[in-house]
Amino acid sequence: MSHEHPHEHGHAPLSDLEARALAIESLLVEKGLITSDAVDRHVYRYEHDIGPVIGARVVARAWSDPAFKDRLLADGTAAIAELGIESPDLHLEVVENQPGVHNLVVCTLCSCYPWYLLGLPPVWYKSAPYRSRAVIEPRAVLHEFGLDIPDETQVKVWDSSADLRYLVLPERPEGSEGWPEERLAALVSRDAMIGTGIVAIPEAVRP
């Protein structure tokens, strides 16, 4: 069974590294040591099944489908179930960033985190500096993440002290109109869904 291999250039010449990678894969497949499907599986798993990609898909859907977004904001648990995502015993509350409102999620008492959407939390989220400062000086914390919030914007901090988990729905970046969901999801970072980042179109991608 033939296997088409993705690479950047269409029919343009391959780079040296692309050629070497293809050489190895084709030789190993010929010698019966691996299958290309197995390679796909491993790449796919890390790119699609693990970590913040799940949350990113939820965000991309909300941006693309206003009715879904309304359902997501009204009942997060039920809405993500539509996408086949389970929230074990923990109700999901989705909080929306808007012009004039920036949301930030923390768990001051331990490390509660919507792991079923974002994977395991980073060490900084569970650390004493973040847990202590996010509630008392959120703007200073955001500044350390490279985010400067305008004075008139309201910063809303959510301390996950009970059985609810919070996901920030970041603002959709300008210039992404008409983009397919998969392309939108690739823009969304874990930090943007915690509130320590925002979503922007990278320089290299802008027309």
């Binding site: 008392i136 008139e152 309201q154 809303k156 901090v157 959510w158 301390d159 002290s161 059985d163």
Partner: peptide
């Protein structure tokens, strides 16, 4: 010490 625009929501 608190910013007049900001809030903290707790469960």
């Amino acid at each position: 010490e608190g910013d007049p625009h900001d809030s903290v929501s707790i469960d």
